[in-house]
Design a protein around this nucleic acid. Structure first.
Lengths: 191, 191
DNA sequence: GGTGTTTTTGACAGGGCAGCCAAGAACTGG
DNA sequence: CCAGTTCTTGGCTGCCCTGTCAAAAACACC
């Protein structure tokens, strides 16, 4: 019926997502995207429409993969330990690759200029928040996590601490400091 | 001896700082800076050297004004209430103007590309961290704040929560949610 | 009033970037 | 093998942005 596409759409979105993640939205050029996806700029416009549309796809993809980032939260170990593992994994990654979280980066960069993209990025928090709330509820049943504060509140409080920690990791805070803060956050969750 | 400058250096740095704060480093052009400072691009290069040098000056200025942002922390009210006021003031501003904190924005945007600017931005946390530590120590003496955790650890934990809250405010989280998190953070400081 | 110094002014060159498009290539169904 | 459809390729246009420079302007000192 027609000439087939030479590239894999999913792989291209993945590659674009990583480029945006590494360089930020503004600093990423369509040439950068062409290089990382392996497509020519013309094809890129034909297939996706342009930089902004591709970024929207990347944000959706990031949200879908949110389960991956929140992976430590799903398992059979005690809920509190799963939350701790989430925090430790997060700061370790942030300290290593310095990219942090794509949603955080996007909101920070574009909150003023691009309300729609900001809203899209915010959606990426939903899976994390849901998983955290669930973990807190489970820990509550175990008698492991405090029951004097609503799970949703605790989840958002942990999420705030988590994102603050990612920033500190990105800024180069010493691992000992980051770990001490993780311990403090976990302790404050205890029943 | 020579032709006098038509502009006020301090005012120009202030104006540049606000432009960087609003638009971000990458998205700010030398034209933007010329407009906000009221100078022509040529004068700007002559006086400061260029965009990057001006940004460094802006970061230094921001750090110096750090006492301003941490203003609520200095006063004669109970330390715990001063910390609460800091958080409330912060999220209120972030929810209103959506600019957040220049240091946070800078680190988030440039941690990979510009280690030196990142380090400079990180310096802006020092006044805040110091003031927080002092407030915690004072609250400890009052018997108002818990003494089972080092003041420095508590200060960095609060700072992480604070920066996470600023992000949530920027992202458009509901005020009720933000306030509930503030209450939780403050409660967790209590003796 | 002349001289030397620094700033201002306006313009120029060089490079990168976004978006578009026409011609060619690849494939399928008839 | 032909026709129709879609993708690829490479280039073109117009815009913005950075950094620099030469000439003119403003001032202080002598």
């Amino acid at each position: 019926m027609a000439r087939p596409r030479k590239f894999d759409t999913e792989a291209a979105i993945d590659a674009a997502m990583n480029t945006f993640w590494t360089k930020g939205y503004t600093a990423t050029s369509t040439d950068d995207l062409a290089e990382s996806t392996g497509m020519l700029r013309g094809s890129l416009y034909n297939a996706f429409g342009g930089k902004r549309q591709l970024f929207e796809l990347a944000l959706h993809r990031y949200r879908a993969g949110g389960a991956a980032g929140a992976n430590p939260l799903h398992g059979d170990r005690p809920p509190l330990e799963r939350v701790r593992q989430l925090l430790l994994t997060g700061i370790d990654q942030a300290a290593t690759d310095r990219r942090g979280c794509l949603a955080v980066n996007t909101i920070t960069e574009l909150a003023l200029r691009e309300p729609e993209l900001t809203h899209l990025a915010r959606q990426s928090f939903v899976p994390l928040e849901t998983a955290l709330t669930t973990a807190v509820e489970q820990g509550r049943l175990h008698g492991e996590i405090r029951a004097d504060r609503a799970p949703q509140v605790l989840a958002r409080q942990v999420m705030a601490g988590f994102h603050g920690l990612l920033l500190q990791a990105k800024a180069g805070f010493e691992p000992e400091s980051l770990h001490a803060t993780v311990d403090a956050i976990i302790d404050d969750l205890r029943a």
